[in-house]
């Protein structure tokens, strides 16, 4: 039983550390998403961000392929990290309850 408890405790410590690391990586990613608008036949880009519960469109004009790629990649990583972060949170919940056993909360 001690072996199992030791492993679970170690895994809980790992998951707690991992949670912080995913949160750090998410905070590092550029905020918002680039969207394209076509106005009078010309294409312009806007950065859509949420600030204080409101959605804001920040004019970016014409952007380079490199910047487009950067935002596209950031969007992919954000989705991936959020999914993995929620997995880590589920693990933490499970490990905490498994370690608590019949002890009072």
């Amino acid at each position: 039983m001690n072996v199992l408890k030791g492993v679970l405790k170690e895994e809980l410590d790992n998951s707690l550390r991992m949670k912080k690391n995913y949160e750090r990586e998410l905070a590092r990613l550029p905020k918002g998403s680039l969207i394209k608008k076509k106005i009078k036949g010309h294409e312009y880009y806007y950065l859509v961000v949420r600030e204080g519960g409101k959605v804001r469109f920040i004019y970016k004009g014409k952007v380079s392929q490199q910047q487009l790629q950067k935002y596209k990649q950031a969007k992919e990583y954000r989705a991936k990290y959020r999914k993995l972060l929620s997995e880590v949170k589920r693990q933490i919940k499970f490990l905490r309850s498994a370690l608590r056993g019949k002890e009072p909360v």
Partner: peptide, 10 residues
């Protein structure tokens, strides 16, 4: 940690 000792020995 005692848990690790037991696990490694096993």
């Amino acid at each position: 940690k005692p848990g690790k000792i037991e696990k490694d020995k096993d």
